[in-house]
Lab assay of single mutants.
Amino acid sequence: GPGLTDLFKTEKAAVKKMAKAIMADPSKADDVYQKWADKGYTLTQLSDFLKSKTRGKYDRVYNGYMTYR
């Protein structure tokens, strides 16, 4: 089956995709945050998933999740 690194890459891609969806349409934020909360994502995990070469690119999404939880 898929190894943990593959799983991480898949999760990371999914999280980034959802983060971009929030940035494009902030009204989606609560739905996405709820999904992440259901998956039990911690802020540390989210921070790892949303690492970007562009500093602060996903800060709004991260901060939103922090206040959501």
Rank of each mutant, 00 (worst) to 15 (best):
L4G: 11
Y68S: 03
P26C: 09
E11N: 05
D38M: 09
L4C: 15
E11H: 06
L43H: 04
V15R: 00
N63M: 13
K53S: 11
L43A: 08
L46H: 00
K39P: 01
K53W: 05
T44W: 09
T54E: 13
D59R: 10
T54W: 09
A19K: 00
Q34I: 04
V15A: 05
D59V: 07
V15K: 01
V15D: 00
Y62M: 15
Q45F: 04
K16E: 08
S47M: 11
A21C: 11
P26K: 05
L50F: 04
F8D: 10
Q34F: 06
A19F: 02
A19N: 00
Q34E: 09
A21V: 09
Q45N: 10
T10M: 09
K53P: 10
V15I: 06
D25N: 13
G1E: 12
Y58F: 08
G3D: 13
T44M: 14
T10G: 10
R69S: 08
Q45M: 13
S27H: 06
K53A: 09
R69W: 09
G40V: 01
K9A: 11
T67Y: 14
K51F: 08
Y65Q: 00
L7N: 15
G1C: 15
V32I: 14
Q34V: 05
F49P: 01
K57E: 10
D59S: 08
R55M: 11
Q45E: 07
D31H: 12
V15P: 00
K53N: 11
F49S: 02
K28G: 06
R69V: 15
D6Y: 03
A24C: 13
D30P: 11
L7F: 12
K57H: 06
D48N: 13
S27V: 04
G40M: 04
G56A: 05
Y65W: 03
D59W: 11
L7Y: 14
K39R: 10
D6N: 08
I22D: 00
T67F: 11
L46R: 00
M23T: 03
R55C: 13
D6W: 03
L46Y: 01
A14G: 05
K12Y: 04
T42R: 02
Y68R: 02
R55D: 09
F49A: 06
A29C: 06
K53H: 09
T5Q: 14
D48A: 15
A24H: 08
A29F: 02
N63Q: 09
T67Q: 15
E11C: 06
Y58A: 01
E11K: 04
Y33E: 00
T67M: 15
K9I: 05
G3N: 14
V61K: 00
D38Q: 12
M66E: 14
A21L: 12
L50E: 01
K12H: 05
Y65C: 01
L7Q: 15
V61C: 02
L43N: 05
L43M: 10
M66H: 10
M66I: 14
S52R: 04
A37E: 07
S47A: 14
K57L: 09
K51M: 11
D48C: 15
R55G: 10
K17Y: 08
K35F: 13
K28Q: 10
I22E: 00
R60W: 14
R60C: 14
D25M: 04
D48R: 15
D30S: 09
T10A: 13
D31K: 10
T10V: 09
G64N: 04
D30L: 11
A29T: 04
V32M: 07
A24M: 13
K16H: 05
D6S: 06
M23N: 04
L43K: 03
V61N: 00
G1Q: 14
Y33I: 01
Q45L: 07
K39Q: 09
F8H: 12
F49G: 01
A37H: 14
L46M: 10
Y33A: 01
K9M: 04
L50I: 03
K51W: 10
P26I: 06
T67G: 08
K51H: 08
T54N: 11
F49Y: 06
I22G: 01
K35C: 14
T67P: 03
T10Q: 14
F8Q: 09
G3P: 11
Q45T: 06
E11G: 03
A29Y: 02
R69A: 09
M18R: 03
K20H: 10
T5I: 10
Q45C: 06
Q45G: 03
S47T: 10
M23F: 04
A21Y: 08
T54P: 15
K20V: 07
K51I: 09
Y41G: 00
Y62P: 01
G56P: 04
D38G: 06
T67V: 13
Y33V: 00
V61Y: 02
D30N: 12
M18V: 03
T44C: 15
M23E: 03
N63H: 12
A29Q: 06
V15Q: 01
T44Q: 14
S27Y: 07
Y65V: 00
G56R: 06
K28F: 07
P2G: 13
P26E: 09
L7M: 12
D30T: 10
T42C: 04
G56L: 05
E11D: 05
Y58S: 01
A29D: 02
K9C: 13
G40E: 05
W36D: 00
N63G: 06
K20S: 09
P26V: 05
A21K: 08
V15W: 02
Y41R: 01
T67I: 15
K12Q: 15
Y65R: 00
D31L: 10
P2I: 11
S52H: 09
A37C: 14
I22N: 00
K53D: 12
F8I: 09
S52P: 05
T67K: 14
K39L: 10
G1Y: 10
A29K: 04
A19D: 00
S27R: 11
V61S: 00
P26H: 05
R60P: 12
M18I: 03
A37M: 15
L46P: 01
A19T: 03
R60V: 15
D48S: 15
A37R: 08
K12S: 14
L43I: 06
D59L: 10
K16C: 06
F49H: 02
A13I: 09
I22F: 01
K28C: 14
T5L: 12
D30E: 12
D59F: 07
S52N: 06
V15H: 01
Y58T: 01
D48F: 15
R60T: 14
M23Q: 05
P26D: 07
K28N: 08
K39D: 05
R55A: 13
P2N: 12
L7I: 11
K20D: 09
K17W: 07
I22R: 00
S27G: 06
A24E: 09
M23G: 02
K57G: 04
Y62D: 01
L46K: 00
T44Y: 09
T10H: 12
G1D: 13
A13V: 07
T5W: 03
G1H: 11
F8V: 10
M18L: 07
K53T: 10
A37D: 07
K17F: 08
K12D: 03
D59Q: 09
Y68H: 09
V61D: 00
Y58C: 02
A13H: 08
N63L: 14
K17I: 10
R69D: 04
R60S: 15
M18S: 06
Y68M: 03
A29S: 08
M66W: 08
V15E: 02
T10K: 15
R55V: 14
A21D: 09
T42W: 02
G40K: 05
N63S: 10
D48V: 15
P26L: 07
L7V: 08
K9T: 05
